[in-house]
Computed example of a mutant assay.
Amino acid sequence: MSNVTEETRKVVRRWFDALTSGDFETALDTLDENVEWINYTPVPGYNDDMKWIGSYRGREAVLETLKVFTGAVDVRFEKLVNLVVDDDQAAGVIHEMSTVRGTGVEFEIEFIQWLTVRDGKIIRWKSYTDPSQIIRALRGDVSGQEAA
């Protein structure tokens, strides 16, 4: 394994460990000051219920969008279930179970975070998922939600 791959693995493990334990201070510390943060593209009438999505630049902008997310969603469980690292690139699969604060409706998703690391910091973060379960929960639709 190359030194670059090993360094990338250390940085992204720190990111995922902090993220899944709710330690936002440590998670933010893994981000480059000028990180490119791409959290889907808002599509009016479809996914724009998710007020935290969009593209942002810089650690402060990321913190603000995370505040919007955590204000709207109570993350009850989050776990890294797979991690692939090659050179300065990493892809992590996260399993999340959450509840929308405004509706009380739960959702469960898997999403992928694609990360680029340089000089010990994450310089690019991009997220991929099917947002339909999040949108359903934000809109208060309990159809399709499994009984607890």
Score class of each variant (00 low, 15 high):
M1P: 02
M1V: 09
N3M: 14
V11Q: 01
R13L: 07
R13D: 09
R14Y: 00
A18R: 07
A18M: 09
A18D: 08
L19V: 09
S21T: 14
S21Q: 05
G22V: 07
E25L: 09
E25C: 02
E25P: 12
T26Y: 01
T26E: 05
L28G: 11
L28F: 15
D29Q: 12
D32H: 08
E33S: 07
E33D: 12
V35Q: 03
E36K: 14
W37Q: 01
N39D: 14
N39T: 05
N39M: 08
N39E: 14
Y40K: 02
Y40F: 13
T41K: 05
P42C: 11
V43W: 05
P44G: 01
G45Y: 14
Y46A: 11
Y46M: 11
N47G: 14
D48P: 06
D49Q: 13
D49S: 13
M50L: 10
K51A: 11
K51C: 05
W52P: 00
I53A: 03
I53Y: 02
R59M: 04
A61T: 06
V62D: 07
E64M: 03
E64F: 04
L66N: 14
L66Q: 13
V68D: 01
D74M: 01
R76E: 15
R76Y: 08
R76F: 03
R76W: 11
E78T: 11
E78R: 15
E78K: 08
L80H: 09
N82P: 03
L83K: 02
L83Y: 10
V84W: 14
V85Y: 14
V85S: 04
V85W: 12
V85P: 13
Q89A: 12
Q89R: 12
A90M: 07
A91Q: 12
G92F: 13
I94K: 10
E96Y: 02
S98Y: 11
S98D: 12
T99W: 01
G102V: 09
T103S: 09
T103E: 00
V105R: 07
E106P: 00
F107W: 02
I112H: 15
Q113H: 13
Q113F: 08
V117W: 11
R118Y: 04
G120T: 12
I122C: 01
I123C: 10
I123P: 05
R124H: 15
R124V: 05
W125I: 05
K126P: 00
Y128D: 07
Y128N: 10
Y128A: 02
T129K: 01
T129D: 08
D130Y: 00
D130W: 02
S132G: 06
Q133M: 10
L138C: 06
R139G: 00
G140E: 01
D141S: 00
D141G: 00
V142A: 00
E146D: 09
